[in-house]
Computed example of a mutant assay.
Amino acid sequence: MIKIRTYFICLSVLFSLNACQSLETLSIDYLVPAEISFPSNLKRIAVVNNTSAVPDSNIINVPQKKEPLLVNELKKSTTYFWGDAAIATESLANGLAGANYFNEVVICDSALRANDVILRENTLSKSEVEELCRKLDVDLLISLENLQIKAVRTVKFMPDWNVFLATTDARIFTSVKAYLPKRNGAMASLVLNDSIFWEEGASTETSAMAQLIKDEELIRQTSDFGGTIPVNKLTPSWKTSQRFYYSNGSVNMRDAAVYVREQEWDKAFDLWQKEYLQSKSKKVKMRTALNSALYYEMQDSIPQAVEWATIAQNLADEVEKATTKMKEKKSIYTFPNYFSISVYLSDLSERMSNIAKLNMQMDRFKDDF
Rank of each mutant, 00 (worst) to 15 (best):
A309R: 04
F365I: 11
G227T: 00
A268C: 12
V47M: 12
E128K: 08
E307D: 13
T174P: 01
Y246V: 11
K66L: 12
A268S: 12
R183W: 06
I219R: 05
Q221C: 05
F102L: 12
A186D: 01
A322C: 03
T174A: 00
W265D: 00
S27I: 13
L119G: 06
A309E: 08
A151D: 14
S189A: 08
N94F: 01
S52R: 04
V71D: 10
D367N: 13
Y338F: 12
Y246K: 06
A312K: 00
D224W: 04
E35Q: 07
A356R: 13
P303Q: 13
I219M: 06
I311Y: 07
K357L: 11
D169M: 02
L190R: 07
D368Y: 05
F81L: 09
L74C: 04
N94C: 04
L290S: 15
K366I: 14
S52T: 10
N354A: 15
I311A: 12
S342P: 01
E297G: 07
I118D: 09
A305L: 07
K282C: 09
S52Y: 02
G226T: 07
T334F: 04
K233T: 03
V258S: 15
P33E: 05
T123P: 05
E275C: 08
V306K: 02
L345P: 05
S353C: 03
I60E: 06
I60Y: 00
T154Y: 02
D29H: 11
D194R: 02
N252F: 02
I332N: 04
F197A: 10
S22H: 02
Q273P: 06
V258T: 13
G249D: 01
K274V: 10
D367C: 09
M362C: 08
F81M: 12
T334W: 05
L218E: 07
N162R: 14
A202M: 10
K327D: 10
T25V: 15
K233V: 01
A53T: 14
V176G: 03
A34C: 03
E275Y: 04
K233P: 00
D317T: 09
I172A: 08
Q313F: 08
A268H: 00
Y333K: 14
I60K: 10
D84H: 04
A111P: 03
L74F: 04
Q263T: 12
K366W: 05
V152D: 12
F8V: 13
N122T: 15
S91P: 01
L348E: 10
P55D: 09
A322K: 07
K327I: 06
P230Y: 03
Y276R: 11
